[in-house]
Design a protein around this nucleic acid. Sequence first.
DNA 1: TATTGTTATACTCTATAACTATA
DNA 2: TATAGTTATAGAGTATAACAATA
Lengths: 157, 157
Amino acid sequence: MASIGDMVAGETTNRIDTQLSEFIGYGMKRALSIVQADLSRVLSEFGLRAVSFSALSIIVGHPGLTQTQLADALQIERSNLVTLIDELAGRNLIIRAPVAQDRRRHALMPTPAGKKLAVAARAAVETHERDLFSCLTGQEQDDLKRLLKKFRQAASA
Amino acid sequence: MASIGDMVAGETTNRIDTQLSEFIGYGMKRALSIVQADLSRVLSEFGLRAVSFSALSIIVGHPGLTQTQLADALQIERSNLVTLIDELAGRNLIIRAPVAQDRRRHALMPTPAGKKLAVAARAAVETHERDLFSCLTGQEQDDLKRLLKKFRQAASA
DNA sequence: TATTGTTATACTCTATAACTATA
DNA sequence: TATAGTTATAGAGTATAACAATA
């Protein structure tokens, strides 16, 4: 049963973080968690997680790159990439091809199945974003994308 | 030594994720990790993490709320809140006050030290955001904040 | 000596189930 | 029966050090 005890300082509990929402970082974190929940649901139909979708997409777009390059691109540790690559290779979505000039390196190459899955998953992710961000106008979506890009470029330099 | 092997498909490795950057979610994730790294550095001077700063801020702003209410506000599990509250209480920043009307509940109250730390930490976080987002104009910062808020409100409904 | 991929490991974060005391 | 806080635990995710093969 609802009572005055369910209120805090006269506010409903679903607006209790107003002060924190003044911080862009907090807004980003809460927004991202909404996106991630929906994205995970979408990608699970392809047997992918966000990080494996990202890895596969980059390998398809840049065939022949090495694990170190991929780790740098995704900002994850090389060591943590190993099992991810194992997973994709185990499903025959990519292969670790030997590099003649440097036998330490593996050239990551997508298989036909990997390319096909990447294309299908990308379409699903595009639909997911279109639906999820339909609450924003096209202009607002572009603005948001642009501001995030601008911030990333400037702040990581 | 640099060589043609350091390039992938004729691009430098630091722009290898262009395709993924078309996704707002990807942009959010990468932007957030930059913010989090800087925020962690700033808050460590107060012995706080992002989540403990958030919890303390909410308790200061809404004294008397219960752990369940706080967990709902921060979107974390009640079970995972316990050690966080233990930590803040152990440092005498908050207390778990008994609630006369319902002895199952704890009213979370900030101590004077907790209020003082929250104010100081908030000022530091404001400075951190001002500096970090100085690469965006004031208008752009407001736009970003507004778009994140609008998305959160619409998408979580 | 340095780099690439790898293994092992530890630490944090998060999610779930079950318990207790209260209602 | 249901709820608030708690405990225990398992699964992700992430960070670090050290190793073998190769440069």
